[in-house]
């Protein structure tokens, strides 16, 4: 295994408010890493800072040892692809058009159709609705579309910001199962999630954020049985 993505000592602030105060993280190839935390812990800020969508006060992001630029569109061209919070599919465009637009940032145009087939094999629901406007899809289908669209860029790292947001539990399970499959086919995944249980079950390693600081990090399966995490994030208590 080799180091794919490395985030060093990231500081981000909104005016006087410090949203992220020195957060570091690494992601190895073919790994799933999740970042969990409560509302306002800085999860989305972290994601946006990695993607270059908010200004980083301090710290740097490295992809395969090379420093990533701070400009968003360059980060995308370097091979990071974010599935944004709230999905943000192009509502007036059809499913097919949304997927095509995802391939925009690639240098070559070669295997677009092949990748499209791959996305359809992951999410057959999308193929059924290929000419439907994205705005008329259900929330879960839009999330699948957003993931498919991000995959069309052939990312080196797939980043997901709250993929479970606003979805029914059964859909969440489906989507997380597909994420595992995507990972097994060789895509490294960095996931930010409020749904701590699903994130811990899916990922190999997990970082726990609290008000801009790292609270804990470790193997996900260890954290699942960690009493502190259990009480704070999983809503279960040790039986006495």
């Amino acid at each position: 295994m080799s180091m794919l993505l490395e985030v060093n000592n990231l500081h981000v602030s909104y005016g006087a408010i410090k949203a992220l105060q020195g957060f570091s993280l690494y992601l190895e190839e073919r790994e799933i890493v999740s970042v969990i935390g409560a509302n306002g812990a800085g999860k989305s800020t972290f994601m946006n800072a990695v993607m270059g969508m908010v200004k980083r006060d301090q710290g740097a992001v490295f992809l395969k040892g090379e420093k990533l630029p701070g400009k968003n569109f360059m980060v995308v061209q370097n091979g990071l692809s974010l599935v944004p919070e709230g999905r943000k599919v192009f509502a007036p465009l059809t499913v097919l058009e949304n997927l095509k637009i995802g391939a925009f940032s690639r240098a070559g145009h070669g295997d677009v159709n092949k990748d499209m087939e791959w996305v359809f094999s992951l999410f057959p629901r999308l193929k059924e609705r290929i000419h439907q406007h994205a705005g008329t899809l259900s929330g879960g289908e839009q999330q699948m579309l957003a993931i498919g669209r991000a995959l069309m860029a052939r990312p080196q790292v797939l980043l997901l910001d709250e993929p479970s947001l606003g979805l029914a539990p059964i859909i969440i399970r489906d989507i997380f199962a597909e994420l595992r499959r995507i990972n097994e086919e060789g895509v490294s995944i960095l996931l930010v999630e409020q749904n701590a249980r699903q994130a811990l079950l899916l990922s190999h390693r997990t970082y726990v954020l609290q008000t801009g600081h790292l609270l804990k990090e470790g193997l996900s399966k260890d954290l699942l049985s960690d009493p502190e995490i259990k009480a704070a994030y999983l809503g279960t208590r040790e039986k006495r």
Binding site: M53, K71, F73, V76, Q77, V89, F90, A91, F104, R149
Partner: peptide, 13 residues
Amino acid sequence: DDRVAASLMGFHT
């Protein structure tokens, strides 16, 4: 249609 989504597709908006 969506500035954030467009920039996430790699458009230099």
